[in-house]
Each structure stands twice: as structure tokens, then as C-alpha cells.
Write a protein that binds this DNA or RNA. Structure first.
Lengths: 245, 245
DNA sequence: CGCCAGATTGAGGAGCGTCAAAATACGTGG
DNA sequence: CCACGTATTTTGACGCTCCTCAATCTGGCG
């Protein structure tokens, strides 16, 4: 997975092509964006709250998250970002971002200057529309998280979350039944609004029910349909494969 | 408040002008959008989950919310929309929206066809950027809600939410210390992920502490600074007044 | 082989949900 | 202007979910 030759932007192109393919010229324009590769070690921040951003980062490999520290002492992970995602795309239109972005695992990201992106968008309005769509999807996912955390029991919440992660990796052809990244139980808790202890118990319950199992440090979904049912999961909000009008 | 002559898009223009004013031509182009006014009664849906949308609605008066019904039976209100907001702006780039939009109070909205918006954006790219920014802010607010619901106690969560609503109305010059819309305790609970009973107790606690008081059916913030402290509130994420680059 | 991050388990308690009832406000028609 | 039906608020009692604290266990690695 770490061969330099593979470090291109094909996951991003793939994402933006969802629904309706980009033209060769557009795909090529994206691939030729002036990027700077950055290897980030696990736990390292990529962007800090309040930084005036002048560039965006595209996840190429690894696992990145957006998080915030709240006064009462806890960390809240607001989103996970997998290859092809642009965690700080919103920074293109906002002065500052009010969250941190960090790598949870050793990761590789591509840094692109906002200037380059603005030029790209000006020359290829269609790409601008697709990127705007990404911002909209980001919001849709966040809203789904609000519902998940606000109104579902811990068990259903966890099931829903696991379904989301699996579906996103499946859309990239990076998974069939196993979530290919390692997420610790502490991280699961910090994203789903529960304590590590309770995460552990909920996972145990899902294992006992035959819905999931551990495969080394990864989580394998043994019964995706049942898990989706347990989590009241409908993948529509991820907009993984819809057409563009 | 219901004089027809006031039913223009000035709140929207105001929103989009934040940070750096729009040109007269741009402001005028927005004001001349072909809109259809729609009076919506309290409780009526404006958009249903999964509707293939071909138009967007701009809130002119009243209070509108985005919500979802989860399997376990509860309603989760994901966002409140006040005058100048476009609750379903994301629909401009997504096939379908996976949430409902309804009026919580008698409201007036302006319906605009996506076609008209696309033309507007094509002719005024700057307006497109500002609308894109709105999508980004929508996502930022949703992420703040994730943190709020996921990691704060009921009391801090409520304080944070009240600060948010007040700040948004203040930015429109529609409030000084009183949230000018009525939100029932049931609605507060459905948005903050708590039961009506607990909402009532939390509000009581905030009243006893002298942070808020009731003014008829409205909530008046008696000590905004203290309430912000109690809710660990920092308005940055609302991006109410920042410059555009 | 020892160390350490992460996982697991137990016990006890706080926060918050549920159920149920009463109180209050609000709109409507007489 | 009052009577009445409905929506909302308020309060109490009780219990479940989930948190905290704390200890033990496991697997990976130098």
C-alpha cells in the first residue's frame, strides 16, 4: 500500500466521478494538480483549530479525523476521512476552521494550495460543482451523525456507524466485509459519544449476536443486512453512487 | 411582521454579504430571482425525505427545521432555519435529500427553481462562491452539534444551543437578548437529544442560576456571557461576520 | 522477557428516560 | 366574558443506560 507510484489522486477522481463520469480533460486536470505529499505519523495534527488555511489536504492513504476538544474535557471526533476525502475542503470558502484534523494512523495526504484549486474550478466549472457536492455530502453525513448520536441507543448507534464505514470503503473497492482500517475502542467512543467501557460492551453484544467479529485488529461484518437493521441504516445519505443532473 | 412589502430577499442578501459586501449588481440579481411565495402553516412539511427536488426554499419569515424520524420512534431535529437560510440548498447538487423540512411556526418561504439558481451562479460566480460558503457553514454547524450532543451534559448542551440561536438572530438584528421565535420544550428535546421532562429540568436549572428567564413564551438570555461559559460556546463556527478572501 | 497501549471485566452510582398526573396557557365558540 | 378542549409545561417517582473508577488481561514490540 505504500508504493509511491500509487500515490496519485485516483480516489479523489473516483469520488468526484460518482454518478456521472468526469471528462478525460477534467480527470486529467485533477490528476495534474500541483500537490505536495506529506507523510503524517499516527496521532499528529495536520491542521489546528483556528489556523488560517491557505491549502487543503486530500487523504491518499491511512485514516484521518476531524475532532474538537470540549470544555468538559472530552474529545469529540466529528468525522472520519478515508482515501479520496478532503477533510478541510470547507476551508476553501471559510476564513478559519474551528476543528482540528489529525491522522489516527500513519497516513499520506496531498497538500494543494487554495490558489490551485480556485484556478482549477475557474477553468473547469464542472469540477467546482462536484467539489461543492462534496461539501454538501459532508454536511449530510454530519446531520446523519446528529440523528445517530442524538436519538439512537448505544448499540444501534455503533451498528449504524460500522455500516457507514464499511459502505464508504466498499464504494472505493477497498473492502468487502471487513473495515480495512484499525479504529481503537477509545476512538470509537470519542466519535459516538460514549465511554470506552461502554464501547467494549456494545461490541461484545454485537459479536455475541453474530453481527460482527474481530479479524485481528479489524472489524469484520458477518451479517451486513442484520447490522444495517440493528443500526437503522440506510446508505442514501452517503450519496455514494448517485447521478448528477 | 407580515406586511407583504417586506417579503423580499434582504435577509438572504444580508447573509451572503457577510464579510465582504456583494456588488450592487449581484445584490440586485439575487433580489430579482423569480420566486414563488409560499405560506406554510405550523407543522406542515415543506419537503419530504427522498423527494427529487427541483427547487430550493428560502426562509423569509417564521421558523423552519430539518428533521429525521429514526426507527426507534424518535424525531431528531437536525437544524433550525431562520430568515435568510436556505434549508435545502444542498439539493442543488444532490439528487435527493434524506431529511424532511417542515415549518415549526407559521412561516413564509420563497421557492426558487434550481434552474434559476444555476443561471444566477453562472452569471455571477461570486454568488456561487457565497452559496457554496453557506453549504460549508451548514456543515460546520452540524459538526458543532455533533460535539454538543456527543460530549456535553444536558445543561451545557442546552446553554450552547440557546447561545447559538441568539447569536444567529443577533446577526440579523432580530434580537438583542431574547430569542424571537417560540421553540417548545418538545422541540428543544428533539433537537438536543433529550426528553421533554429533562429539558424542563435543565431550563429550570438555568433559570434558577439567573442565566435565562421566560418572557411570555420566549426565552430571554439574562446573562449572555455566563450562558456562553456554561455552554462552552464560541460563535466562530457560525461564521457570522468573517471576511471573504 | 519485560513493557505498554489497548481490550476486557466488575462494581457502584449519576444522569437522564419513561410513565403518569397535575397545572397552566391558549384558542374557540357560545 | 366565560366554558371548554387542546397543547404545553411542570412535577414526582422509579428504573435503566451508560459513566466512572479501578483492576486485570492480552497482544505486539524492542
Amino acid at each position: 500500500m505504500s508504493i509511491v507510484a500509487r500515490h496519485d489522486l485516483h480516489f479523489l477522481v473516483h469520488r468526484l466521478s460518482r454518478g456521472f463520469p468526469l471528462s478525460d480533460m477534467e480527470a486529467s486536470a485533477i490528476s495534474h494538480l500541483p500537490i505536495m505529499l506529506k507523510h503524517v505519523e499516527a496521532g499528529a495534527d495536520i491542521l489546528r483549530e483556528g489556523d488560517p488555511a491557505s491549502e487543503a489536504c486530500i487523504v491518499l492513504e491511512g485514516l484521518v479525523c476531524r475532532y474538537e476538544i470540549v470544555a468538559e474535557g472530552g474529545r469529540q471526533i466529528q468525522a472520519y476521512h478515508i482515501p479520496g476525502d478532503i477533510p478541510d475542503l470547507a476551508g476553501l470558502h471559510l476564513q478559519t476552521l474551528e476543528h482540528n484534523i489529525c491522522a489516527l494512523r500513519p497516513s499520506i495526504v496531498a497538500m494543494v494550495s487554495h490558489r490551485a484549486l480556485h484556478i482549477l474550478i475557474a477553468e473547469h466549472p464542472q469540477i467546482g460543482a462536484r467539489l461543492w457536492r462534496e461539501t454538501a455530502i459532508d454536511a449530510a453525513v454530519a446531520h446523519a451523525w446528529v440523528s445517530n448520536i442524538g436519538r439512537r441507543t448505544a448499540r444501534a448507534r455503533m451498528a449504524h456507524f460500522l455500516c457507514e464505514m464499511l459502505a464508504r470503503y466498499q464504494a472505493l473497492d477497498l473492502a468487502s466485509d471487513t473495515i480495512p482500517c484499525i479504529i481503537t475502542q477509545l476512538e470509537l467512543g470519542d466519535s459516538q459519544g460514549m465511554s470506552v467501557v461502554h464501547v467494549n460492551r456494545v461490541l461484545k453484544s454485537l459479536k455475541r449476536a453474530g453481527l460482527i467479529e474481530m479479524r485481528g485488529k479489524n472489524i469484520r461484518i458477518r451479517d451486513q443486512v442484520a447490522l444495517q437493521f440493528a443500526g437503522d441504516f440506510d446508505p442514501s445519505y452517503l450519496h455514494l453512487s448517485e447521478a448528477v443532473h
